[in-house]
Design a protein around this nucleic acid. Structure first.
Lengths: 333, 333
DNA sequence: ATGAAAGCGCTAACAA
DNA sequence: TTGTTAGCGCTTTCAT
């Protein structure tokens, strides 16, 4: 059906190697170059990357595994990664595993069979055992947003701990002491880091922490709503709250509206991620922001670098700074 | 490096064909089956899908081209498509073209070189010329959300016209006549359909349309904000407005807050897409919703069906119903 | 049911 | 610079 280099060779009267050389940027006599190009155009020839991949043992495909495509934080990162990779000739096969460890394992296998040249993933669990087989082939694996036990590989992280600590201290400086937190699921890397930041802030401010001020949510909208209600019920004297991811921030806001809790009059509020949503709220939310574009860019760059160089021993870990966008939801007391 | 079927053949003392047959679900003597499975486990063998693809001329990869991954509407659809495809053994290479026709063309070429088995795309432009070469190979192309000139292929669409018509008529029944619309970009398929629905509603209600009540936005948050301001300024007597996509809905809400325009007291409001956002607003937004999951599912199913059957002549077009979720932003007059 | 052999489209020695 | 040849890992006749 489609033309092959054989057809081009026949058409031009040249040998296969010459065509191949031309395709790979080798030196070809001017006269022949013209002939080849004419034949390519005439026969609508396009390199068969599958055949090339079989021969070179490189597919120029990168596997991307994420917990939830349908999640702005992930989507923003992936958009950037995909853009950068493709501009360097790499395709991205995206696998959404619905925050499910088993699905994630299957995805790794799936991509391995397809001989992807590298893996970029935002892991759902904490163990990296399922990556071992892949990593043993000396193909690069780059972790995004979360670290993993049982395996050592490059990672692009965010300073979650510092981010939350900074945010809580802002509340402290505004005169708050009864500051609640809607934390993330136990065992989850970012969730624990953020919680640690919360604790550190209390320590640094010299305020005694009270356990009932922390409630665990599950990083979903519904979870945020439920947690908000529970937290407020348990702590009627709470004056401020920090919600530790976007979905729960939205959920908390929905619930606050539902319960008619005035923000910031009754309760000061700091949310997480998604500037647009924060701006759409009344009053504008004060939020912690993450550098999603930069995360994506750094991850892709790191991958491209690894792909180019010889497999080396030591893993690189990048940690990026977060931001804070002032809204009008922190009230001075 | 990795084990091949040759290794398995050697290990088991069987022929290549037998191994291949086993891998493809053929009949193999029980005794040999056991031997093969042992060898596979021992050597960590995994089929090389690249080699298989070269031989069978099928990559089991579907190309997905979208205008903006970082867009909930797209992301929700893709999530569903990817899930379904992968559960049938197909990988998805996703290409985000940033709503840019040129990038879209490049993406088609990119995917063509990689010999994807089919293409699912949500086109940015109106012409399908860039798909001709691909379609000529008798590989399935499925359009999502938008139709295309110059080419005939399957599509999964939404009844945008009916959706908007219905929404406007709700406003009419609530006593409104000066109903504004923030429409989408000219030439854009969905935008024109939605605008047509708006016009039809006026016609059906017997209200004379006034051109100044329609303003074109660009489907972005900033565009929605700007359009909202412009529309209101131009029509101080407008009593209701319909915004025709999610990003602009968010933008309009931001701007309404900014301008301190009370909804629905001063202005009744109907937004588009994203139920969660609608629920997070105060008061809850009344919105038109699109069946994103179903769009994705139908597109994937259609693709799977096409992949299975002989290339046939006539194109299938599916048109899905929209929904309407009542909020509290429509005021009776 | 199994084996031998050819070949998918390309690249990479090697030779000329 | 160019041509010849082997072979990447698999599937697929065609025999057996």
């Amino acid at each position: 059906m489609a033309a092959t280099i054989k057809d081009i060779a026949k058409k031009t009267g040249l040998g296969l190697a010459t065509i191949s050389s031309y395709l790979n940027g080798g030196n070809v006599r001017e006269k022949n170059r013209v002939k080849i190009e004419a034949a390519i155009k005439e026969l609508h020839f396009e390199v068969n990357e599958v055949a090339r991949g079989l021969k070179t043992n490189k597919t120029k495909i990168i596997g991307i595994i994420i917990p939830e495509l349908n999640n702005i934080f992930c989507a923003e990162i992936i958009t950037e990664v995909e853009d950068l990779l493709r501009s360097h000739g790499y395709a991205a096969i995206v696998c959404d595993c619905r925050t499910d460890g088993k699905r994630e394992m299957e995805a790794v296998e799936f991509l391995d069979k397809r001989r992807v040249d590298g893996l970029i993933l935002m892991p759902s669990g904490n163990s990296g055992k399922h990556l071992r087989a892949f990593a043993r082939k000396r193909k690069p694996v780059i972790l995004i947003d979360r670290k993993l036990r049982d395996i050592e590989c490059d990672s692009v992280l965010v300073d979650n701990r510092g981010a939350v600590k900074d945010a809580v201290l802002r509340l402290v400086r505004a005169g708050h002491e009864r500051i609640g937190m809607i934390a993330g699921p136990e065992e989850m890397f970012t969730a624990e880091e953020r919680l640690a930041g919360y604790n550190e802030a209390f320590y640094e401010a010299g305020i005694v922490r009270q356990k009932e001020l922390v409630v665990r949510g599950d990083y979903t909208i519904a979870g945020g709503a439920g947690s908000f209600r529970a937290l407020l019920k348990r702590n009627p004297d709470m004056t401020a709250v920090l919600v530790s991811n976007y979905e729960m921030t939205m959920g908390a806001i929905i619930e606050a509206n539902e319960m008619d809790v005035k923000i910031p009059e009754r309760l000061s509020f700091i949310g997480f991620d998604n500037l647009e949503f924060a701006r759409a709220c009344v009053p504008r939310l004060s939020i912690v922001t993450q550098p999603t574009k930069e995360i994506g860019r750094r991850a892709a760059e790191l991958m491209l670098k690894r792909l180019k160089e010889e497999p080396s021993g030591d893993a690189v870990s990048v940690k990026l700074k977060t931001g804070f966008v002032e809204g009008k939801t922190i009230k001075k007391r």
